[in-house]
Design a protein around this nucleic acid. Sequence first.
DNA 1: GTTCATTTGTACGTATGTATA
DNA 2: CTATACATACGTACAAATGAA
Lengths: 235, 235
Amino acid sequence: MPRNPVWKAIAKTLETEIAERLYPPGARLPTEAALSDRFGVNRHTVRRALSDLSERGLVRSRRGAGVFVDIVPTDYALGRRVRFHQNLRAAGHLPEKRVLRIETRPARRAEAEALDLDRESEVVVYEGLSLSDGIAIAHFESVFPAARLPGLAAALAETASVTEALARAGVADYVRAETRISAERASATQALHLGLRDGEPVLCTISRNETPEGMPVERGTTWFAGDRVALVHAG
Amino acid sequence: MPRNPVWKAIAKTLETEIAERLYPPGARLPTEAALSDRFGVNRHTVRRALSDLSERGLVRSRRGAGVFVDIVPTDYALGRRVRFHQNLRAAGHLPEKRVLRIETRPARRAEAEALDLDRESEVVVYEGLSLSDGIAIAHFESVFPAARLPGLAAALAETASVTEALARAGVADYVRAETRISAERASATQALHLGLRDGEPVLCTISRNETPEGMPVERGTTWFAGDRVALVHAG
DNA sequence: GTTCATTTGTACGTATGTATA
DNA sequence: CTATACATACGTACAAATGAA
């Protein structure tokens, strides 16, 4: 068996086709038998892929009727394809990034776990501020698996764009695998960076980004100024 | 085949045993082979049950090692089909609701807009607390379009369950259309209800629920105790 | 460090039940 | 009523990760 399960590749293909409106919302997918033929696999392998899409809310199956597209994965604040600057630009604001720190150090426990690394492995750390119209609205720290992404640190220093830097390190595309959201009090450092009073609430999100094939490429923590940002989740 | 799938019965049995701490958090479940023997079914039927538990976050499997009861804090899955109590129960906690207020009054501006109502229309207001293992973790206020849901107020008073009350008012199914998430400081009232110190951070979510046909049926605002809950978004 | 039994993951195959159109 | 399509359940085989000998 391949390292990357066949069912995952099928799920990814179908997801793309749904996103591209080949199967628009409400449409019926080809039958399991037809999909088995198309991908040259057993029906149960297709079912595994459909089950994955169903779990994630993309499709819904009705016994005897078929499998139907439930929602469409689009770009929104909290979604599978989050690109921070794109969102702000879409909202008519001027996005900007300020780099605070780029360094390489051993992975911490939670980071190693999220990135599927050994404890000894090194990570590239990228800390900075996101501004909108000149006002700081978020403070972020991203860690990347250094070994898997040669030249990333240099690329980050040059471009400041995560997407662009990852592209230069060989990662053409990535998607958000999970996001955790909680509320915290701003630490003294954050309060300083975000121009908040001490103890004001911040939105803390911890997210994991992966390649379409499932290799973790980033674990990002972002602290949003609670009163300047609202995350929106469609669906 | 029976109307009630075997795998569901097995999942239910295991869920109960986990909730009763026969398998405490962190413990390893019997192997798939052992469970097959115990329930007298094929290994794949056991796997279907375990997959269900895994989906709901009760267990996590490690290839080569076994299936382990997940040590979950109260993670709240943020998805298209959110049912608050189901989530807590899935995490092995005892969910409970306390009704603070049920009343009917004219819609406010934001409510009317979200529910697609005239300003003069009336809404049913349902305010209460959600508890987990006896500890308040959220304070909520839901408003419903009164005219569209005859008998809802009475049903809410009886069952306290939104899903059940909506079912009695003729809404068999509903999905979350949108969620807005922000961080705030707890008001004095919320601090009291949630047992927080004044000014502690709370996660505020505003969501709109619709029927599958797109008719708005609920606008809910929930304030979570920031340190007791983390919202999780898969995908 | 290597080997090896154990355990979960993937994939295919077959049969039958049940809801839908 | 019938054909179609998804759901359940059994089975076999091998891959891949784990952990202990």
